[in-house]
Computed example of a mutant assay.
Amino acid sequence: MKQNFTMKQGAIDGVEAFLSVARHRSFRKAAAELGITPSAMSQAVRALEARMGVVLFVRTTRSVGLTQAGEQFLSRARPAFEELVAAGAAVRELGQRPVGLLRLAVPRAVVPLILQPVILSFCKAYPGIEVEIAASEERVDLAAGGFDAGIRMGQFIDADMIVVRLSQPFPFVVVGSPDYLRTRTRPKLVDDLRGHACLRLRRPNGSVVPWSFLDGNRTIEAVVSGPLVAHDYPTLIEAAVEGLGLAQVPGPPVKAHISEGRLQAVLTRFATTTPGLFLYYPSKRQILPKLRAFIDHHAKSRRR
């Protein structure tokens, strides 16, 4: 076997060599432990002593002992080095299997769309992963915020991100409760909304979102008014269920409300369609096992 004549890559400026000699009280045994020559071991320790300006070992032809400075350095360097080794092992574990903290930046409106049906089963399937969902309508910098990934509707994701589809395209629908629609004329055209109480969404930048429709190939933006402006879709949906007015919301979270009769859809032939929901993360970042596990688990859940 070819012998190494230099310190192993990863040795920290002679500290690993010092600790090994201190443990064995022998340069030869320490060199054998680290897989280097006794000469390289001695050079590493001398370089450390020169850098510190103090002798750490008392060397004789028959023994090796620690000086007072060596004893003091050993008492503090050993636990620090062991902690550093443990930190390296923990980082390697993150790169080898799905463990650790998975931080996702998710708009509040997306939580009921995609995460609630999956998150419980994911946590049970991967007990070594702790999931943190930062629910906010703000567009965050994933790297600066320490997030592994984000989830958004496709039209709101920057072009330099890697994206993974989480849902099929879905429509935005206008819904109202049966009680509300009994008291008003059901709208058949977009212009009919002028006589209705419309529940609206405010963007993070402060602007109120206009209602969008599609008439053939023509896009229509309707400026509507009503008694409530909210910052998330779940609030609008709940207000619509309670009969406060009409709301234009993503189709998936109101599907059950419509099928069970709590809400009715109107103006369906003018509904616009969003590209769907996507998970995204920076293109230059290596995907860690914990994020890959989430993507794969969601894909399996959709196939069931």
Rank of each mutant, 00 (worst) to 15 (best):
R103G: 10
T60K: 03
G146M: 02
P107E: 03
L56Y: 12
M52T: 07
A77T: 10
T61F: 06
I119R: 12
A109W: 04
M52G: 10
R108W: 09
S136K: 07
L66D: 00
G128M: 04
G146T: 05
E130Q: 13
L115W: 01
F57R: 12
E83G: 12
L115T: 00
T60I: 02
E93L: 15
A135Q: 13
S39P: 00
I114R: 07
V99T: 15
G95K: 08
A89Q: 08
E49A: 12
I36W: 08
I114C: 09
C123L: 04
L115G: 05
L142W: 05
A86H: 02
S63R: 05
V110N: 09
V118C: 05
V91H: 10
F147I: 01
K124Y: 00
A69G: 12
G88E: 02
A134P: 01
R78A: 11
E82I: 11
R97G: 01
P79D: 00
V110K: 10
P112H: 07
A134M: 08
I119D: 04
A134T: 13
V140G: 06
A77Q: 01
F81R: 14
P98Q: 07
G145L: 02
V64D: 09
S63T: 06
Q96I: 01
A125C: 02
S75K: 07
A135K: 07
I133V: 14
A134L: 15
A32F: 13
V140K: 13
E130R: 08
A125D: 10
A31K: 15
L84D: 11
D141Q: 03
E33W: 01
E83D: 11
A50M: 01
V99A: 13
V55E: 11
Q72E: 15
V85M: 12
S42K: 15
C123M: 15
I119W: 05
P117I: 04
Q68Y: 04
V111A: 03
R59V: 15
R92V: 00
V106N: 09
P98L: 08
G100Q: 10
E49S: 14
E82K: 07
S63L: 03
E137C: 02
A47N: 08
G146N: 09
V54C: 09
P112E: 04
R76Y: 00
L102C: 13
Q68N: 12
L66G: 02
F81W: 09
Q68W: 02
G100K: 09
G53R: 14
S42L: 02
R108K: 15
M52Q: 11
R46G: 12
V54Q: 11
I133D: 00
V140W: 07
R92F: 06
R108F: 04
P127K: 09
